[in-house]
Design a protein around this nucleic acid. Structure first.
Length: 283
DNA sequence: ATGGGGGCCTGCCGGC
DNA sequence: TGCCGGCAGGCCCCCA
């Protein structure tokens, strides 16, 4: 699931129950997710206070009073469930444990934060806070698409000469960090660029439109996530998924939503991933 | 260096 | 109803 907007939504949802709070106890129900969990993760989390919750790309980073940072990645199917806390007008009791509840954090204040991940492509690690940026998973990440380091000249330079389709280029986390399959499809649709076009064969003027479009697509999705957070607070406390109106993603065979266009959305496979686009107005 | 493909896991959905 | 193939929004690793 989770691309940058969903991860940011999860981070914001966790903030009220985690930031400033002690971890009273950490249940670790299996020794590994995608990789082995760090040694004695439960012990190292217990008694730590969460000083801040940050996000880098699709990673959530919880800085702890122990000098360590808990790194969390949701993979494809990772979810966070908050229970035992006043959420809006509702009080949520702790639900029965579910299959794939791999890690449960019992927080000061009475909330439980449960990491559930069926496919186990997610990950957690615990590292020295001062060394977060050099963690192997983060060290080579490109700039944040909503940050200052991502601008026209940067993108221009990175795409120049590249022979790979623009679809693959934008999915490359070392080029720009946080886009996934859905938002790349949506971005290319708005920019009217075919996912098959070679990255190095996009005119300078179209590359320059790409930057604000990427920012806009992500910002709108974060906003939609924000409104879904209010719903979660009145619903079941599960963070991570929210309804968002996609214009091309998963709309194979349906009408193109571009004004005046009579095309139908096509689905092709590029490096093993589905790309959705309109063959009439994206070129 | 770059680009492409396989693999990791489980669950779900559609077709027969 | 049951089985089976295909598919899933991520990312690392290996190979040419």
């Amino acid at each position: 699931m989770p691309e940058l907007p969903e991860v940011e939504t999860v981070r914001r949802g966790l903030e009220p129950v985690m930031t400033g709070k002690l971890v009273l106890r950490a249940e670790v129900n299996r020794p590994d997710l995608r990789w082995p969990l760090p040694p004695d993760m439960g012990g190292r989390l217990t008694g730590a206070r969460v000083l801040a919750l940050r996000r880098r790309s699709k990673y959530i980073l919880a800085d702890l009073s122990t000098g360590e940072t808990l790194l969390i990645h949701l993979g494809m199917s990772g979810r966070m469930l908050i229970s035992g806390q006043m959420l809006g007008d509702f009080h949520h009791d702790h639900p029965a444990p579910q299959k794939h509840d791999h890690v449960v954090l019992h927080m000061e204040g009475g909330a439980r934060v449960t990491f559930n991940d069926a496919r186990r492509f997610g990950a957690m690690d615990l590292i020295a806070t001062h060394a977060v940026d050099s963690h192997p998973l983060l060290a080579r990440l490109g700039p944040e698409p909503l940050g200052n380091g991502f601008d026209e000249s940067y993108l221009q330079a990175k795409l120049a000469g590249r022979n790979t389709p623009i679809k693959s280029a934008l999915l490359d986390q070392n080029l720009v960090a946080g886009l996934g399959n859905i938002y790349v499809c949506e971005t290319l649709f708005r920019a009217r660029i075919s996912p098959k076009r070679k990255a190095g064969r996009i005119s300078a003027s179209r590359v320059s439109t790409l930057v604000p479009i990427i920012r806009q697509v992500l910002s709108e999705a974060i906003e939609a996530g924000g409104s879904s957070l209010r719903d979660y607070r009145q619903a079941d406390g599960e963070l991570g998924y929210f309804q968002h109106a996609f214009q091309v993603y998963d709309r194979e065979g349906e009408a193109c939503l571009s004004p005046g266009c009579t095309g139908r959305i096509a689905r092709i496979v590029q490096s093993g991933r589905s790309s959705f686009y309109c063959p009439l107005c994206q070129h």
